[in-house]
């Protein structure tokens, strides 16, 4: 199994057609995915990042059999999602999250029981299993309350509980920690890691960069329906030009100075942005040779020069990639 990726897609495209206007006479075409190639290996946590409307949810629904691709190859656990969805469904779990998607008038436990039945969780194990997942998401005490009384975060936890109820081999999570307080979000990340320890492969989308950095072995960045990068965080750092990020701040720089900074050894990228009354240059640096002192000497004529160095974060990488794509 490990030789073959658990999720394998090639040139996945998805077009939405909807009608607008009073007489539904205006046809609107949206190309949500424009040829997505992704491979996710067994047992890894794979993160899909991207701006709003990039196509993350669309892609998640396609790989979890809830939406057909307009064209392209999509295989999950070796099954073709367009032809073998019925074989795949018992083996995968999907958490779309949000406030909706639950039967509000009945209790959390009854919701789980209903879906356990639809998913065919063996009868003799069902009630025990429900108890187990309730415990895992910390909802035991609220289990017999109506879902309509739940807070947003509690609903999110119930979504998660339902997603893992039938013991899926692959779990798809669309923004699993959205709406959770910091403690619950951390517990959810712990839960995700413990699932991986049990051998589950995780595919998740998120807008929280630190979350992706903390959890994911590999990450893909989706922008306007295209994968602009797909690698480990370390690999992505190389891709955007370096582990080191140096920020230089002063009341303005001239073009010549920026040119000279760019020409320094190991510097791959210099971006300037206004920062209040000041200008900030963000530099990606590949090597350890370049010392801050060198830059300080170069820019010695600037009063109140501020100079900082940090490790390139996933957020830096993400913004680089998405901005590059946009320009």
């Amino acid at each position: 199994m490990s030789a073959h990726p658990v999720i394998h897609t090639r040139d996945v495209r998805r077009v939405f057609e909807s009608r607008k206007g009073f007489f539904f006479n205006e046809l609107v075409r949206t190309e949500a995915l424009k040829g997505v190639d992704l491979d996710v290996d067994a047992g890894e946590i794979f993160g899909l990042l991207g701006p709003n409307g990039a196509g993350k949810t669309t892609f998640t629904k396609i790989v979890s059999t809830l939406l057909l691709p307009t064209s392209g190859t999509v295989e999950v656990l070796g099954f073709d999602v367009t032809k073998e969805a019925h074989k795949l469904r018992p083996r995968i779990g999907l958490v779309l999250g949000g406030e909706r998607g639950l039967y509000n008038r009945i209790s959390a436990r009854e919701n789980l029981r209903y879906f356990a039945d639809l998913f065919g969780v063996p009868m003799e194990r069902r009630d025990k299993r429900i108890e187990e997942v309730l415990e895992r998401v910390d909802l035991v005490e609220a289990a017999d309350r109506r879902v309509e009384e739940f807070s947003r975060g509690m609903k999110q936890k119930l979504h998660l509980a339902r997603g893992i109820l039938h013991g899926p081999e692959v779990l798809f999570l669309d923004e699993p920690t959205i709406g959770l307080d910091p403690k619950s979000a951390r517990e959810t990340r712990k839960l995700i890691r413990s699932l991986v320890a049990d051998g589950v492969t995780i595919f998740l989308t998120t807008h929280y960069m630190f979350e992706a950095e903390e959890l994911c072995q590999r990450i893909a960045v989706l922008s306007r329906g295209r994968v602009v990068a797909q690698d480990s965080v370390a690999g992505l750092r190389k891709l955007v030009g370096g582990d080191r990020t140096i920020e230089v701040e002063a009341y303005g720089f001239d073009d010549g100075e920026i040119q000279r900074l760019r020409a320094l050894p190991g510097v791959s990228r210099v971006v300037s942005e206004e920062y209040g009354p000041r200008l900030r240059l963000t530099m990606r640096v590949r090597t350890n040779e370049l010392e801050l002192a060198t830059i300080r000497t170069m820019l010695a004529n600037h009063p109140e020069l501020a100079l900082r160095e940090r490790r390139t974060s996933l957020e830096d990488i993400y913004l680089d990639l998405v901005e590059e794509e946009a320009s």
């Binding site: 909706r100 639950l102 639809l118």
Partner: peptide, 12 residues
């Protein structure tokens, strides 16, 4: 309610 999606994602 948004329950059509999880229902359809089940094997039933």
């Amino acid at each position: 309610l948004g329950t059509l999606e999880p229902t359809l994602s089940s094997p039933t």
